[in-house]
Design a binder for these strands. Sequence first.
RNA 1: GCCGAAGUGGCGGAAUUGGUAGACGCGCUAGAUUCAGGAUCUAGUGAAGGAUUAACUUCGUGCGGGUUCGAGUCCCGCCUUCGGCACCA
Length: 835
Amino acid sequence: MTREKDLYEAPAVEAKWQKFWEETGLFHASEDSPKPKYYLLEMFPYPSGDLHVGHMKNYFIGDVLGRYKMMRGFEVLHPIGWDSFGLPAENAAIQRGLSPAQWTADNIATSRATLHRAGVGYDWRREIAAYLPNYYKWTQWLFLKLYENGLAYRASGPANYCPGCQTVLANEQVVDGICYRCDTPVERRHLPQWYFKITSYADRLLADHALLAEHWPRHVITLQRNWIGRSEGMTVRFPLVGEEGRHFDVFTTRADTLYGVTFMALAPEHPALAELVAGLPQQEEVETFCRAAINQREIDRASAATEKHGVFTGRYVRNPVNDEEIPLWVADYVLATYGEGAVMGVPGHDQRDFLFARKYGIAVAPVIRPAEGELPRAEEMTEADAEYGVMENSGPYSGLTSEEGMARLAEAGPREGWGRATVNYHLHDWLISRQRYWGAPIPVVHCPQCGEVAVPYEDLPVLLPPEDQVDFTPAERSPLASCPEYLKTTCPGCGGPAERDADTMDTYVDSAWYFLRYCDPTNDEAPWERTRADFWMPVDQYIGGDEHAVSHLLYARFFQKFLADQGLLRDPEPFPALFNQGMVKARVEKANGSATMEVMSKSKGNAVPAGPFIAEHGADVARLYITFAGPPSKDMEWTEEGVDAAARWLQRVWRLVAGNIDAVREAVSFEELTEPERELYRATHRTLKRVTDDLERLHFNTCLAFLMDFVNRLYLWEAAEAPAFGYALYHLIKMLAPFAPHMAEELWHRAGRDDSVFRAAWEEADAGALAAAQVTVVVQINGKVRGRVAVPAGASEEEVFAAAAEEANVARHLEGRKVVKKILVPDKIINLVCK
RNA sequence: GCCGAAGUGGCGGAAUUGGUAGACGCGCUAGAUUCAGGAUCUAGUGAAGGAUUAACUUCGUGCGGGUUCGAGUCCCGCCUUCGGCACCA
């Protein structure tokens, strides 16, 4: 009959403490604090409005950690803001006639309310939004900084164009030839675009992975390393036969095979081609081929991966090392965007060249033999041999190993004027211009007199024009180009009439520096004050999904390095510690009755909306379930049973602690405890140690397992009026706090405290208490467990053995056998090796 | 093809450095309490054998070898799944 009264009413309690935290400024971070700082950050979220529980996972991970660090005595900076430029707002405008700004503001309000209601502890005073002029003013400011330093430039080149989004994309936004956002196959177009010169930082981005090795997931570093794709080699110059002074360069990592070159192949897009074949009998064939190849490869590059096509141009080039004349081909397997857009064909030692040569009857000339073997015979080869070996038929280099040969050739190249050592990267400069409205305008003016002129710093921000002046409907050029009020301006240089650049920036530019703005979010004079950035940066723990491994994380690292070079920041890396959380999956029922577990999303119909869920079950239940279901780094599955279990356990904790709230006590005298109580005291500290250790490792699921275990044990004491029980409850409340903050706060106050539990210190486990007087040692015979014995802690081999021999089962197994060796792991195990 | 991660009960998952495999939870079984429960409590729950309160024994962490007193953990060789890159010269 009192049961109803005992039930924990989450909604009312949670609202009460959320208000309390807000009013007491619990999560306000200050640079004036004497405490050590801890900057905790989850990746800049896009305000999609209707957050589902899957979205909440990384906020909860952050919040558990933040509250814990707070209790550990850190001044925690845990900010939030909105990555709020981008296509969805604009599409809402096009499709439903909504205002992008209003639509965005509404979504932010909804998302913000959900996070509030989830009880995630943020310093809301520092909230920022990328679409507001007081933010994008500084995005533009950073653009100008890069421009000033030659790291932002406009160039015409092959760009990835998405017909769906009607804008160009960065390489990082094209996945398998498909737009990352709308799944439309991407086309290649030649357009003048703005780039950030991230390639200037390629080597440093690579080298500084060493600084991240310890606290970044290894696969993220690997992904970045592969994406940067540094490769060392030589650029070799092949003169064009019959036209003195003209030549073609190729990049090769295998200069040791130079004597085996039997043809050269250009990419179909190679700019010199048209002129090269003009007037030749091959002209038409080459042009037809190139047109087909360029179109075809964009439609379906993957399936054409093995079959190679090409045509002979009718021209020849001369191999500079042996003066041989070799035919010049066009081939569809040569990439225009890598190296020089041309390759030297070495069929003997490159599989692609081999396939190509065999198909078109080009000679194969092996020049490398295995260290322990013969030079392969061209006519017998069925595939290329790409291994290093010993050079043959290579003039003065014959007999050298591949490594030696390459070193000598790298020296000879410049001396003899035909080549030089070079480095190539898979990474390209970051294409940042977008032909869309909802982004930060590029602060550049095009003047017929002065050309390209940067907008002066004092004229920032370049504001987006009002929405009613703009036609959002994509028309292959930026919507801003349709707005004369925006476009027409005066040149900052000469004062004459000029036009603004009509493009806006990639939203990844916004997120490449937002973590810096949190350090000083309201600064009107500068993007941030150096002293404030130096106080908070770098981010001590960054949390987010690994879908940003090569985009956002690479861009942000690039910005950080550039800004440090400018003296605006101190540290070489923004995020020394990165944590990748796994995703939340849920059942998707298929039409045929089967079901699969898929990543939760609204479009799949398996999303559980966060707001309604929290209203029904409470935020603590959501947090607890998500943190207990598995390691935060792995994907988890959302199930009804799991929700019930979390809710049930919280009620169990509530009954235990609230029902014995008067027993809660902060201290006990170990000396005065009975032995069973001492055992409980030890269990308390053992739990504290385990929970602490696993919080530090971000293994929250095991923290909760230990707490469950502890609660199970405490139930055995419930009726007893033992001091050690009240003491255990006291610690339970504190240990519960990071995981179920609302309930813990309520219990803490019911236990008579006025201040927040999060201002209470998280204690170190009592090391003395952890060392029990009696320990159980496992007895193994030949590696098999045969018994357990209780001995005093620190017992010697002889003592343990003596006790073991007494144990019935052990004695039985020892009968008639001789113990030849004893291995003791103190206080844990003894293994008796018997014959 | 290359790179990365992972394979442990019916299920989610534990097991820092090699040292009691299966913690904790779900589910299931039995019982208690209850007008009733999808609430709560207690006990059991890897498989097989042995057993009517057994003790205990054998097998067992994807597969096959190896190192070791001892292997989920280390080494060698495979298989499978997931993720990323994919003609990068």
